[in-house]
Design a protein around this nucleic acid. Structure first.
Lengths: 136, 136
DNA sequence: TCTTGACTTCAAGTATACTTGAAGTGTTAA
DNA sequence: TTAACACTTCAAGTATACTTGAAGTCAAGA
């Protein structure tokens, strides 16, 4: 199985090595084997885990929620209900975030248009446009 | 013009009063007048500003970026280019977030399905389903 | 062999965004 | 009027997620 040094993983995920050590110390990574000289040796399992961490982090999970989730996963059969419930909660959260962010995207876009019109009005000494928007 | 006490605003935005005072101290709010006895009196301008703060915060802006933006806004004509450039950057950022979050939503949903299948397999003593997914 | 850069541990430091506590004043309903 | 609760300031504290520094070991090319 292909293995990786910390620097390769660091570059792969654009995360400083210190963060990888930090995640490990927080119990987010599967056991990381070390070379004879003590250097970390990562494999595909770690890469998959890091993808998963990134995904969950973006959906708003904290380090301690991540740790909890991965702990449940290590004894899937005993914690299947907790895993499913946690995932369903997270699914709800990410979908709410999605709706909200779609709204926010629209609002920011409106602002770009509004200020572009302001700029035009300023340049040509024209009356200022009016701001119309119902922000949520 | 209708005015509001801090508690009304606090409930309206589900933000503790302390956070409202904090935002004010960080220069995110327009001048907040005080009653004779020193209590804050908010109006629609503050409400609009808070909606705007919430929107930008969700798109990832920090307090100091928000402060900068609102400072530019107070002298629109002098800073119109900075305002537009800042807004365009933020529009890009929010749209990237949106794409990423859509992906993440899909992944979380797949996980829900996968573990539901695991649960079913456990309950009925069936072979475990396989995990197939290309996570981004 | 020597040097340069990457790695190690562990404790302490930092950034961001609030939150809390103390000590006191103001407001309101019974 | 008196209790109960909301409000005030200001400084200090907290939570989360890293990040940095010190001091030392290891690996690879000139």
């Amino acid at each position: 199985m292909k293995t990786y040094k910390i620097k390769e993983i660091s570059e792969m995920f654009e995360l400083p090595s210190s963060t990888l050590r930090y995640y490990e110390s927080e119990g987010l990574l599967p056991e990381v084997p070390k070379s004879l000289s003590g250097q970390r040796i990562y494999n595909n399992e770690h890469i998959e885990r890091l993808k998963c961490i990134n995904c969950f982090k973006r959906t708003g999970m904290t380090i301690s929620q991540l740790r909890k989730f991965f702990m449940y996963e290590t004894d899937e059969a005993a914690h299947i209900d907790e895993i499913i419930s946690l995932l369903k909660d997270q699914e709800q959260i990410v979908n709410q975030k999605l709706v909200q962010l779609q709204n926010d995207s629209t609002h920011v876009h409106h602002k770009v248009e509004y200020y572009s019109a302001i700029k035009y009005a300023l340049k040509n000494n024209l009356p200022m446009p009016l701001w119309k928007d119902e922000e949520e």
